[in-house]
């Protein structure tokens, strides 16, 4: 049985199924992180004292990480654009770079976590660190999830390119939309946690 509009666009809605699906998924993700950001605001406005992020956290490392993650978003778009132009080898290079940048992001984040733990700063220490670790931890899980998808598209998943290039290109586009969202969350996290 064939499900219609798995790779071709439905004319009256203008999207294929997975694209609508990922946008809906991202809407729910907005609500998830929205819930947590609201929790942050709620706790901060209700707190007697609240530290400035920069007193505790490492801004140079986080700035580096911001650059790393934005670059990975750029390479992700390039990967998709390469496929849309029919250049599979270029796609592999760009998606490979995206994955590598994801690894770099997690490595730097891990370093930051390690430095906090060394100084005896844990989630249980105070509410600021609790929300810091929860938000960045959940974001980190999202980065890992995105990397698993990207590695799959780079490896076993790329076999689809020969059989059904349109569908494979769509998959990369959908994975890209998710990856940009993860990037966007970080762009909100960085000022909220580090700069305010």
């Amino acid at each position: 049985m064939n499900i219609p509009y798995t790779s071709e666009v439905r004319p009256d809605t203008g999207v294929y199924n997975a694209k609508l699906g990922i946008w809906l998924f991202l809407a729910s993700e907005v609500m998830l992180f929205g819930g947590l950001f609201s929790a942050y605001i709620f706790l901060r406005t209700g707190a007697a004292t609240w530290p400035h992020g920069w007193e505790i956290l490492n801004i140079p490392l986080a700035t580096t990480n911001t650059v790393v993650l934005i670059s990975s978003s750029v390479t992700m778009v390039m990967a998709w654009a390469s496929l849309a132009g029919g250049n599979f080898a270029r796609f592999r290079r760009f998606l490979g770079t995206t994955v590598a940048l994801g690894v770099a992001f997690l490595a730097i984040k891990g370093m930051e976590y390690g430095m906090k733990f060394e100084h005896g700063l844990f989630p249980a220490t105070n509410t600021f660190l609790a929300i810091y670790f929860t938000l960045t931890g959940l974001h980190g899980l999202h980065v890992i999830g995105g990397m698993i998808v990207n590695v799959y598209l780079l490896g076993p998943g790329s076999k689809m390119w020969r059989k059904d290039p349109q569908r494979f290109t769509n998959r990369v586009e959908v994975a890209g939309l998710y990856w940009h969202f993860v990037d966007l969350v970080w762009i909100f996290l960085f000022p909220v946690l580090y700069l305010l």
Partner: peptide, 14 residues
């Protein structure tokens, strides 16, 4: 379901 459950998920994380 799509938009109301995630805040509970956030609460459950916390």
């Amino acid at each position: 379901l799509l938009l109301a459950f995630p805040p509970l998920e956030a609460a459950a994380c916390l």
